[in-house]
Design a protein around this nucleic acid. Structure first.
Lengths: 147, 147
DNA sequence: GTTATTCCCTACTAAACCTGTCGACTTTAT
DNA sequence: ATAAAGTCGACAGGTTTAGTAGGGAATAAC
């Protein structure tokens, strides 16, 4: 399950992606428009900034904007940053592999093999979906008709 | 992330699937062999039984066995039962749809569309992978060679 | 250089959830 | 009767989630 944090982060990023590149937007404005508690949002924006997805400007006329073009930011990066690895099990993770303590012969573990497939397909979708794709209505391979 | 409960449940079911159909196995034996706390496992087995995946026999010579053939029990059923809907967001769920309270115009929500694709691909894998498939080494479309 | 604005940072909290544990009760075979 | 086994409710300790609170630091405008 996606956390509120990740959901809020995606909303904020999508909102920023709609603006002309370099436009500074106030945290307060994002909070109001996206209906996210202001202080909570600040924590999230800060995390996104630390990870290099956002650029910020302090003081008057400050705010946040994307650090790269919307086509350069994927859902996968955002979800991993805020919610951790995609894989349903640590032993099925590629980016954050960890052995199951109680699993003898991991190599033949059927559960792991299935979960590995799940993680691969999640990664294929999320790492491939960028903010630009979302705004353009491109979801996966198909282009969405009107609505 | 898969809960311990779901992981233990899958382990127990796979173990039962290896036995000849109808063989009663003690909760205590499953617990020991799969290294799962006994009392905790009992809760899980009970839940599996209530959902019709297991059959139990009380008293002496009692135990648990699968209620159906291993080919009739999918990973998806088990995961949904113990961990809830597959979808990363309630608004992207098929089996347990719930509107996002703070989402105006859900219809055009880009986040939802992406998460819907994630849930579809998870469901395709998990609902298609049965206990029998796992034991046979069938994972998805390909058959696994030795190792 | 003062002031208003805006992001930055740390600490805290209340509630929920996860992972079990405990103890008693019921059913059943011997 | 007795012992073996599943059934059930309550609870507890730790972790995570979803925020809140309050100030500190940088910057622009005046």
């Amino acid at each position: 399950m996606l956390s509120q944090k990740a959901k809020y982060a995606l909303r904020a990023l999508l909102m920023l992606a709609e603006r002309p590149p370099g436009t500074m937007v106030l945290a307060a404005e994002i909070a109001e428009r996206q209906k996210v508690p202001r202080k909570f949002l600040e924590l999230i924006l800060l995390e996104l900034k630390r990870d290099g997805l956002l650029v910020s400007q302090r003081g008057r006329n400050g705010g946040y904007c994307l650090a790269r073009a919307p086509a350069g930011i994927s859902f996968g990066q955002v979800v991993r940053l805020l919610d951790g690895p995609l894989a349903p099990l640590p032993c099925a993770s590629v980016t954050a592999y960890r052995r199951c303590a109680d699993c003898h012969d991991e190599h033949g573990c059927h559960i792991r093999l299935v979960m590995r497939r799940v993680r691969d397909s999640m990664a294929a979708i999320l790492d491939n979906a960028t903010l630009a794709d979302a705004l353009a209505g491109r979801v996966g391979d198909e282009l969405l008709e009107d609505a």
